[in-house]
Each structure stands twice: as C-alpha cells, then as structure tokens.
Design a protein around this nucleic acid. Structure first.
Length: 926
DNA sequence: ACCGCCGGGTGCC
DNA sequence: ACCGCCGGGTGCC
C-alpha cells in the first residue's frame, strides 16, 4: 500500500470539516493552510476502482430548516463528516452538488456512519429519492462503497446501531441509483462493480476520440476568421471556467439518467442560474448575462480594444506574423460563456467579430519594443489605463519558462500603443515582491517555477496575496500532478476567472482532466466526490451515460482548435509535410570494440543482478550501463564518466556516500530516461534519492515513509527507508560554459561523420536551409561544434543549462532570416519545453533516440508547427546492432501503450517494476 | 411538524 | 398526584 498517498480523507465521502472545492467561497481564507491539508489535492482514488457496492440504506436528513442548500427528487447529495460539531462529534452533513449544506444525517444514523467514514470502511453516497421539497426532513437513500474486506465491518457497525443494510440490487453497480429508478429487484452479492461492464481499452479510446470528434463538429460554427480573411487557428485546447466557484449550471450537462439523478440542482427555472447564487457576485446573472461572449472576455483582457476597431496592419513591420496575434500558436484566449450555450449560434457571430479585435492589435512603436526587450524585472509600461473599475483588474499569466519570451514578444507585437497595457514580467531575482505594484498592472507574466518557489517560501508570495481578475495557465497540463508544488501554488491563487491553455488536457487518465477542473474550481466537478461519482467511475466502468456526461462537460467548458480544424471544409491550417527518416549508422571497427567491451561487462553485471533478483536494487547502475552504451553510440569521448557501478559501498564515509548518491541521481535525471516516480507515476518533481539509490519525488516518498512508520520500505526494492537518509538533488549548477575543453584530442565518430556528411550535402543543395541538431547529451553537442566550425557552419546553441537571457538570444538569432544568421542550432532534447518555436528550421537531425517517444515528437513539433512553411525532414541516427535499435522497439511499445492508455487503470507498482525489468532485458539483449 | 417530545398546569363525576 | 391527562411550546447536529 505504499503507493497510496492517502490523505486523511481522500475520497471518502468528504469527512473533512471543510472542502476547498466544495466551498470555493471560503478557500481564500484558508490560504496557505491548504498547503498543509493536501488531502484533497493528492489524487489517490485508484483504490476506488476496487470498490464494490456493499448495499443500500434508507435514512433521514434533518434540520433542513437551518440551511439553504436545496435538492430535487432523485438528486445526489454528498455526505460530509463534521467532527467539530459542538453538539455531536458524529455529525454528518448533507450537501447538495453545489456544496451547499442541505441538512444533517439524523444523529442515530450519524453515529455508525461517522465510524464507517472516519475509519474509511466505506464511502457513502446519497440520493434523495423523494421529499426533496420537505420543510423539515427528507429521506436519503445511501449506498455504501468500499473494499470487499471491509464489508462485514460496515454491516456489523450498522447492526450495532440497529440498522440493516439492504443488499445491492442488480444493475446498481454504477451507483446511480439506477436500482431506484428501474425498480428492479433481486439481491446480488456476486458481481462486484468493477467486473461488471468494463469497456476494453480500445472501446474507451475510441469513445474518447469521438468525444473530441464531436467537439470539432460543434466547433465548425465557431471557427475564427482571422484578419484579412486569413484563418486563425490554434492547436491548443482551451479550458475556461466561467466564474470562480460558480457552479456549472447543471441543466447544461444533463443527459439521460444523469439528469434524473443529478437533476437541475438548485436551478429555480429552466435555464436560470442556481438559486443559491442570487446573492453571490454573479457577473453574468445581471448584465450581459447570456450574450456575454468571448469578446467580452477579451475586452477585459485588452481593455480598450473597442476603440481600435480597424486593423492597423499598415503599421505592422512584420506582416508575416499577422497570423499570430496571440502567443503560442495563436492561443486564443477565449472563453465560452457557460450559461449561454443555448445561444451558441449567437456566440459564434461574436467570435467572428472578436477576431476583428484581434487584428486590431497593432504593433507597438519600435521604442516600446526596445524597452520591452529589457525583460527581467523591468516593467513594460505601455501606457496607463482606466482605473475607474472596481475590483481586481490584473491578469496573471503563468507559463513555462520556455515560452515566457514568446508571450512577451506576442503581447508586445500585437498590442497597439493605443491599447494601453501595463505588463510586468514577474521573473528573475529582482522581481518586485510588492503586491501593490503588481496590482497596478494589466498583465503580470510569470513562470510555474517562480509561482511554486514563491509559494513554497511561505508568506512571501505577492502572487498569492493578490486577487486577480484572471489567472491564465499556459500549458496548463503542467498542473496535472496534484502533488507538485506548482499545482498547489496554482490552486491557491485567487482569481475571478481561471483559464487553462493546453494542447494535452488528458494525457494518461481522466484524472488529468480533474486536476484541471479543480483549478477552474468548476462546481460541482472540482469536488472529487462528484467528479468520481458522475464521471470517472461511470466512464471507466463503460457506462454510456457517463461518457455522454463527460462529453457534455467537455463541450461546455472547452474550445478546441486542432491542426486539422476546418472551416467550410477547408483546413484551417495546412501544415507542411513532415517526414521522419531513420538513418542507420555503422560503427567503425574501433568504436565497435569499445562498445562491445562495455556491453559485455555491463551485460555480465546485469545478468548477475537478474540471477540475484536485484535488478531494481541496482537500477541506477543498470541505467548507468545503458547510458554508457548510448553514449558510445554517439562518440567515445562521451563515455568518460567511468564512475564504476559498484553499489553503495559499505565503507563509505557519509560524505562519500552522499556524493555517490547525488551522482547516481544526476545520472538517472540526466540520462534522459524520463524517469518517473514509482509512487505517483508522474514525472519527478523535487527528486530525492534513497540510500538504496532509487529516485522519487520528495513529497511522494516522504508520504510513504510517514505512512509506513516505523519500518518503511523502498517501494522498488524493499530496502529500509529513513527520512533522514533521503538525499536531495543539489540545485543544478550551471554546467553552461563549464564544459571543460576536454584534454582529449578531438576525434570524429561514425555518427558525427554521418551528420557532417548530411549537413554538407544539404548545404550544397540549399545553403539557406536551417537545421536543428538534437541530442540528449550536451557534451555531444559540444563535440559536434568542432567539425561545424571546421566546415564553416554558422551555428547557435540552446540547452537546458543556459540562462534565460542567452536562450532568448540564441532563439532570436536562429529564427532570423538575415543573411549570415546561423543555419544550425545545437539543441538539447529537453531544452525549451513545449512552446519553443524554431520554425526557421526545416530539417532536424536527431542524434540519439530518446526513451520516451513523446519527447522526440515534442521536439519535432518545435519546428513543425504553425508558421512552418516548408516540409520538415527529420533524420534519426540509429547505430546498427546497438542499444539504440533496442530503444526504438521500446519506443514503439510505448507508443502503442500511450495510444491505448486512456482511462485504463494506473499500472500497479509491481507492473511498473515488471515493465522496467522487461525494458532492461530488451535493451541489453538478455 | 396534520408529528413526537418536553415540561407546566392541573386534578371526581 | 412520587400519578395520568391536557394542551402549549417547540423542533438538527
């Protein structure tokens, strides 16, 4: 059970005194305390998949008098423990889907329920079958869900208090009260829920594809016309919430049973807003309401757009970029007006008008541009704006560092001087910690890392002191890992509106989507219970209604443009062709000898681990062997780190041990293996290494240790774990420019020869063509520099260790079309992240295969993206008969896995282990 | 709540 | 009457 980072209340009928999701209005008051109570955000409901329905029980909700929460017949309610209730420590609150309290469970029943919930024996879900309009009490039909092994304890506890649960009825496995609705009877103890009607992976995958297919269809009416008739598009999926904490009008997402069960909660009249919100600050219920559109949204983004009705393209210096009027492949910061979906056609008109606004953003004066170039902490004072409005008016944009400069460029390029905007780039050591200063801006731009580190250093984050008009998460899927500091930091921002821009809203499972919803604070789905009851469980069980519900939800909160989007049958974006070639490289006799020697040695060691059954205990060593082999495929000089793969020796001093561990961790992290944390199965955040040399996220492994006290064991090798033994990764010291001019004489390698041959050939054909040379090994890139110079290539370089300023220079330099600008960029595979735009290149040379094929694809997309005018040719160098070829086959496996991965259960820890072991076998030919 | 329960007022027929 | 009965006040947890 090590991998379950259970918070005190995760997923169990909300036995917390408050919920930061179901009570969005108070979460601001909680502030940093939320950071401590991470239970709700630590997404750990994988166990819920194992839950079965124990049975049903009828009870009563009392005290309706005293609460405002309303329900309708057949509607679901949430049960929430209230241990601090002064009258009864067993108190169980009953809340409606909006998180408003309806009443309490009658105390006699609350007593056993409290015990069951507190001890996590079952998760209790409720439906009000009738009597919803009663004045004082109403019935509640409860269903109890839990692990089979806890069933008897639940039955006993209820019996102890004189309650007898009715056994589950057939067809009620989904917990939608379908038993109530169908009226079918007949006890069934035999069929546990998860075996019922589970869909195959393929089915789910195709269903999910349909989800987006339909969305595209739907979008046809809303495609955006760009300036001068050009078509705008984006490959970003855009999620937007409507209002902080405002419930999603439920009638929008009703379909079939969902409606019956879920009902038009708190909705007074059809299409009306939830009753309970009438006294809340509902911007839409009053003013523009249903006709509020994207345009209105943008108007607050760019306050004076209406004054600049006509496009000012005459003023623009670079008309080539006219298609991109917003950063990042024209991420269109649009937001769909949730309550007005019925007026979709109307909205579509406004979409079109809106693009007029987009084009109205003309280029700023050269002077301003220049000024804006001095980023860092300099405030880009474009002009003042109207201060008469009340409330927050600053938009906070959070993006990965790699796209920070894109945003700055795009904002400055497309904002005309008469659209007065204050932009502050909250970045760098000198960033102002003055909330006042920030609140005076129109837009504050920052990165996830800054957000997280500010948040981490408690009390010192001006970002978290302010109330924002809007918080925009660019590449918002970065908050997928609920345990990541940046996720918590983002969740705790206060904003009136929240937007997420992402191209990959769902990467592994539906839970990814939930993380986004929880940021959007989209009621009721931001609450785990509702999410799970209404979407996740039904969908993974293969319930059609659940899928429709999910589809409906997605439709209502997303805007999507894909590369394939069409308007009137015409593709919106015609990306040039992209071809991938694999070029095999044969090692020289000399290289082969070295390779073979290292391979034999490594193979020997690894097969010994296999026979001992200690492969995973020596995982870092195994990776080390593989790394050396991969390096040897590139160039013999790469393989200089002969740090022998002796285990963590016994006779080491603590300092030596520490250093060894740090080196191992660096090896794991830098080997490009895209290691995941075996606890959260997500990519490593805040990596630490154990004494047994396994790397985990710090929060994950700490939780493991905490929960398994006092004898915590390593999830991967069952060695003893101790908190004080964890070694943190020292801050990446900038090895930039510290790449020592190797003492060794420069020598070529087969791969370098192959590359140089290709480059020179290419130059003969077309001297202007620009290339990316990509490798995971920065030292390899350095080695490539020598022949490039010798052959007179002008090149630039971009790798992860470069400071932001240098990066920007390198990118701008490379993207320039001026004669004499570099034709080659040496690029480290992981540098830059998603948004990096290198469309000047039309050729890519991938020098070494990556573990993760997605990383390669992402890299290719840096030039094969909006703005690319030429066909893109990618050449992957792969050494014949080597670990690289084996990596390709693993890549293929991963691709297949990824294609079918959606909605399948998270692999268990042992599955993860087995996969790793199999991979190692494949890689080293065992 | 068109109930249950509580506790004060009351007390033959 | 240390009861029963009546009828008003009252009402979640």
């Amino acid at each position: 059970m090590f991998s379950k980072n259970y918070g005190p209340s995760t997923g169990y009928g909300g036995n917390r005194t408050y919920s930061c999701y179901s009570s969005g209005d108070v979460d601001s008051a909680l502030g940093f305390e939320d950071f401590l109570y991470t239970d709700d955000t630590s997404g750990t409901d994988e166990d819920l998949d194992l839950f079965v329905l124990f049975g049903n029980l009828r009870g009563n909700v009392v005290g309706l008098r005293y609460y405002t929460g309303v329900v309708n017949n057949n509607e679901m309610v949430a049960l929430q423990r209230e241990p601090n209730n002064p009258y009864d420590k067993n108190a169980v609150k009953v809340n409606n889907v909006n998180g408003d309290q309806v009443g309490h469970i009658k105390k006699e029943l609350a007593a056993p329920l409290a015990y069951i919930i507190d001890n996590k024996l079952a998760r209790v879900e409720g439906i009000v079958p009738y009597g919803a309009k009663n004045a004082f009490t109403m019935p509640i039909q409860m269903s109890f869900w839990g692990k089979e092994e806890n069933k008897q304890a639940v039955l006993d506890r209820l019996k102890m208090h004189g309650f007898k649960m009715a056994p589950p009825l057939k067809g009620s496995e989904l917990g939608f009260g379908s038993n109530l609705l169908s009226g079918r009877a007949g006890p069934s103890y035999s069929a546990p829920g998860h075996t019922a009607v589970q869909m195959t992976t393929e089915q789910l995958k195709s269903e999910f594809d349909k989800l987006f297919e339909d969305l595209k269809e739907d979008d046809k009416t809303r495609e955006i016309q760009g300036p001068e008739g050009k078509t705008l598009t984006t490959i970003a999926l855009i999620l937007a919430n409507f209002h902080n904490g405002k419930p999603l009008p439920v009638e929008k997402i009703r379909c079939d049973q969902f409606y019956k069960v879920f009902g038009a909660t708190s909705v007074k009249n059809e299409g009306d807003l939830p009753v309970k919100d009438h006294n809340c600050n509902l911007e839409s219920s009053t003013s523009s309401g249903k006709s509020e559109t994207v345009q209105a949204q943008l108007s607050s983004f760019y306050p004076e757009r209406t004054k600049a009705k006509k496009p000012k393209y005459s003023e623009r210096s670079d008309s080539e970029e006219s298609e991109e009027w917003l950063p990042q492949e024209t991420r269109i910061e649009t937001k769909k007006d949730l309550p007005t979906t019925r007026k979709r056609s109307k909205a579509s008109c406004n979409f079109q008008e809106d693009t007029g606004f987009a084009s109205a953003l003309a280029a700023p004066s050269p002077a301003l541009k220049k000024k804006a170039k001095q980023k860092g902490t300099s405030s880009i004072q474009l002009a003042k704006r109207d201060d008469s409005e009340e409330g927050p008016r600053t938009t906070l944009i959070i993006c990965p560092l790699s796209v920070l400069s894109n945003w700055i460029d795009q904002l400055e390029q497309h904002i005309s001087p008469d659209v007065h905007l204050n932009l502050y780039v909250y970045y760098g050591p000198d960033r102002s910690k003055d909330p006042e200063l920030l609140s005076r801006q129109d837009i504050v731009l920052t990165t996830y890392n800054i957000l997280a580190s500010d948040y981490g250093s408690r009390g010192d984050s001006p970002l978290h002191k302010l109330k924002w008009l809007r918080v925009v998460l660019d590449e918002g899927h970065t908050i997928r890992n609920p345990n990541a500091l940046q996720t918590k930091a983002a969740l705790n921002l206060e904003a009136q509106r929240r937007w997420i821009l992402t191209g990959t809203p769902i990467q592994n499972s539906l839970k990814d989507l939930w993380s986004l919803l929880s940021f959007l604070k989209l009621k009721p789905f931001a609450d785990r219970e509702w999410w799970h009851r209404t979407i996740q469980r039904p969908v993974t069980m293969g319930d059609q209604a659940g899928l429709r519900r999910l589809q409906s939800l997605i439709k209502n909160i997303t805007l999507r443009r894909t590369k394939m989007s069409k308007i009137k049958g015409k593709p919106v974006l015609e990306l040039p062709e992209r071809k991938v070639f694999i070029q095999h490289v044969v090692l020289t006799e000399e290289e082969r000898q070295i390779y073979q020697a290292v391979k034999n040695e490594g193979k020997l060691a690894i097969s010994r681990y296999f026979s001992e059954g200690t492969v995973l205990a020596h995982y870092a060593d195994v990776l080390g062997v593989l790394l050396r082999l991969r390096q040897l495929c590139c160039h013999p000089h790469l393989c200089t780190n002969t740090s022998s793969f002796s285990g963590t020796g016994v006779n080491n001093t603590p300092e030596e041990l520490r250093e060894k561990l740090v080196n191992k961790m660096k090896l794991v992290l830098s080997s490009g293996s895209d290691e995941e944390c075996a606890v959260c199965l997500d990519s490593l955040t805040f990596p630490v290494i154990t004494h047994c040399a396994h790397v985990f996220c710090k929060p994950c492994i700490c939780e493991v240790i905490q929960s398994e006290q006092p004898n915590a064991k390593c999830p991967l090798c069952r060695n003893e774990l101790r908190l004080e033994h964890l070694v943190e990764c020292p801050l990446e010291e900038s090895d930039f420019e510290s790449v020592k001019k190797s003492d060794q004489e420069w020598i070529p390698s087969s791969k370098i020869n192959a590359l140089m041959h290709a480059l020179i050939q290419l130059r003969k054909e077309n001297p202007a063509v620009k290339c990316l040379i990509v490798s995971q090994f920065t030292t390899f890139l350095s080695l490539i520099e020598t022949p490039l110079r010798e052959s007179g290539f002008v090149f630039t370089r971009l790798d992860g260790s470069m400071p932001q300023k240098k990066r920007v220079e390198a990118i701008q330099c490379f993207q320039s079309s001026q004669a004499g600008s570099p034709t080659i960029m040496l690029l480290s595979l992981k540098a830059g992240g998603v948004g990096l735009n290198l469309t000047a290149a039309s050729r890519v040379f991938l020098m070494d295969p990556a573990w993760n094929p997605a990383a390669e694809d992402q890299c290719f997309d840096r030039c094969h993206r909006l703005g690319q005018k030429q066909a893109v040719v990618i050449t992957k160098f792969v050494v014949k008969n080597s670990v690289e070829e084996n990596m390709l086959s693993i890549q293929n496996k991963k691709r297949k896995l990824a294609a079918g991965a959606f909605a399948t259960k998270k692999p268990t820890a042992s599955e993860v282990k087995q996969t790793k072991i199999n991979e190692i076998k494949t890689l080293i030919d065992l």
